Simulated assay, not measured.
Amino acid sequence: MMTQEFIFEDNYKKLGFGIFSENNLNYIHDNRFKPYIKIFFAPEGYELRTDFNHYTTTGPTLFFINSNQYLEVSQGKGDSFLIYYNRDFYCVQIHDKEVACDGLLFNNIFEIPKIELDNMEMDTIRTLFSNIYNELEGKESSKEEMIRTYLKQIIIRATRNWKKQNIHTRVENISHNDIELFRDFSRLLEIHYREKHTVADYAELLHMAPKTLTHKFKSLNIESPNQFIINRILLEAKRLLFYTDKPVKEIAYDLGYEDPAYFNRLFSNKVGSTPSNFKKNYSLGK
């Protein structure tokens, strides 16, 4: 069993807090965590995978894992902490004006789900985690709102740090409007990638010309919107290939491709392997 686990649950709302050590990291892979939004704290030296990206932490790190993403921890020393909750407890989309993290911490097109913590930020985050732990362990009637308040503080601080570590390092003096455009594109892509496959589709949703959108991304020193669209489709294709038993033809249809042969060519060209070979080789750990 886990070292410790504390849960708040009221009607449909649920938040849990788990403490892990090197002896029970395998419990993080438990299927019961998959439907939840997760914030995972890992100290230095942890090895883990989110979707198909592998990480080794070089210092204290927070990972933000959406309910449609996968988290697997292979090894690590020292205590790690997992906060998991459902959208009924706190939905970042509904409360976007409060925390402005959707499209950055979650559903960001870079597929970068983490921030690294310096000593000062580490102390603050540890205090917030400890506050949530204390509220869960206590019996105060107002604990739900206190926990939500601490959770929001973690998300807000992490969002600020994500911008510094992943956007401001790429573009000096980036404007608020440019960051909001980036977030809007990320959120729209997450909603529509199954049926909208072109830059023109998203430019229309953003009320701008396709060339303007492409130029904006170029000025931000990031990949083209077209490449981000393809990357998101391929990520979902990999998830469906590896985590489900769906045949390639059905996956192609799920992702909005009426011609499975075209989907096969796209996948093979971008990934360097046919969908069938990717599934077989990845399952074997190649």
Results as ranks from 00 to 15, higher is better:
residue 187 R to K: 04
residue 277 N to G: 00
residue 274 T to A: 14
residue 19 I to A: 11
residue 153 Q to I: 12
residue 265 R to Q: 03
residue 157 R to K: 11
residue 138 G to L: 00
residue 190 E to N: 13
residue 137 E to N: 00
residue 245 D to N: 15
residue 283 S to T: 01
residue 106 F to L: 12
residue 163 K to L: 12
residue 232 R to A: 02
residue 112 I to F: 08
residue 170 R to K: 15
residue 157 R to W: 05
residue 281 N to M: 09
residue 130 S to I: 06
residue 186 S to I: 02
residue 183 R to V: 06
residue 76 G to P: 07
residue 235 L to G: 07
residue 267 F to G: 02
residue 280 K to H: 11
residue 103 G to K: 12
residue 185 F to Y: 03
residue 185 F to Q: 03
residue 279 K to Q: 00
residue 131 N to D: 14
residue 240 L to V: 05
residue 137 E to Q: 05
residue 75 Q to S: 08
residue 7 I to A: 08
residue 8 F to A: 06
residue 229 I to P: 03
residue 267 F to L: 07
residue 3 T to K: 09
residue 272 G to L: 05
residue 228 F to R: 00
residue 79 D to E: 09
residue 77 K to L: 02
residue 204 E to L: 12
residue 62 L to K: 04
residue 262 Y to N: 09
residue 191 I to A: 04
residue 196 K to R: 02
residue 83 I to G: 05
residue 119 N to K: 00
residue 111 E to V: 02
residue 75 Q to K: 09
residue 261 A to V: 12
residue 280 K to Q: 07
residue 204 E to N: 12
residue 32 R to D: 10
residue 205 L to G: 10
residue 209 A to E: 02
residue 194 R to D: 01
residue 36 Y to K: 06
residue 53 N to C: 04
residue 40 F to H: 03
residue 79 D to W: 02
residue 151 L to Q: 10
residue 281 N to K: 06
residue 102 D to Y: 15
residue 199 V to W: 11
residue 25 L to D: 08
residue 264 N to F: 12
residue 53 N to D: 10
residue 91 C to H: 03
residue 59 G to F: 07
residue 110 F to Y: 15
residue 279 K to M: 08
residue 257 Y to G: 08
residue 227 Q to M: 15
residue 108 N to G: 06
residue 92 V to I: 15
residue 28 I to N: 03
residue 103 G to V: 06
residue 257 Y to I: 09
residue 104 L to E: 01
